[in-house]
Design a protein around this nucleic acid. Structure first.
Lengths: 128, 128
DNA sequence: TGAATATATGAACAGTTGTTCATGTGATGA
DNA sequence: TCATCACATGAACAACTGTTCATATATTCA
């Protein structure tokens, strides 16, 4: 015990870690902060039902903004805002044809991720 | 064209869909609303860096709340709140030993999902 | 050129979320 | 039994997010 002996109790847990070795090991295995931040930003994109609808809609089809709006039931403006987010994060890409912008998925992993999510939900439903 | 001919322009896009057939097809392929809602709720859990840290920390180790708090750098209370969320959604499970609660992952898919996310980010970084 | 159309974007606002503080609960051991 | 500890939980609040409304931009066609 070379640790400072701080008898000021109250938040003992914060100061004297119960299993120091395990904590150090876990810390060293954690991805770096940048990766953790980007990971959460990435998954945040899937954490909204409008965006999930958009992604699932584009999974297999190429559609213009107006059509996407009709499919997901959100105003053109709302869809456009969400598409911008998805575009900036390279989940979708766009091709301009005349006045229209056609959107498609820009990452082959997206379908996989959503599929795993559905599996989780189905298993959870089955296990009631 | 058996559609009502509404000449009130303004929001034409909302009313007269550009590619009706594609829209109907896309709609029919979409998972039902319950699934879409649960999917977004599920991914929301990954959309916060504290929770991602917790999940990555528990991916391989079994730790008590106090230790998790030390690893992720959030107060015991904050971690406890997040663990409750993860517990309620069956991403983690807990075993009580005396005063301590030991947490582990409760779903074998979680590691997969995070891994795919990291791949996406690494590929995005490489493609600058 | 000017009207119509598809999309993008800024502002504003309500609803949600993550954190901390304070406190409650239940187990341990003196 | 009483103090201590690990953990859980409720309240409060600042920060963030998704939507709509209004408007800007850009393309087509008469």
């Amino acid at each position: 015990m070379t640790e400072v002996n701080n008898d000021n109790a109250a938040d003992r847990c914060e100061e004297t870690v119960t299993h120091g070795d395990k904590v150090e090991r876990a810390k060293s295995l954690l991805p770096d902060d940048d990766m953790l931040f980007e990971l959460s930003e990435f998954f945040k994109l899937f954490g909204d039902s409008t965006r999930i609808k958009i992604l699932e809609t584009l999974n297999g089809s190429e559609l213009c903004v107006c059509d996407i709006s009709a499919v997901v039931g959100v105003s053109q403006s709302g869809v456009s805002h969400q598409l911008r987010l998805l575009r900036q994060n390279r989940l979708v890409k766009t091709t301009k044809v005349g006045k229209e912008s056609y959107y498609t998925l820009d990452d082959e992993h997206i379908g996989d991720i959503i599929k795993i999510g559905m599996n989780h939900i189905n298993e959870r439903r089955a296990g009631l």
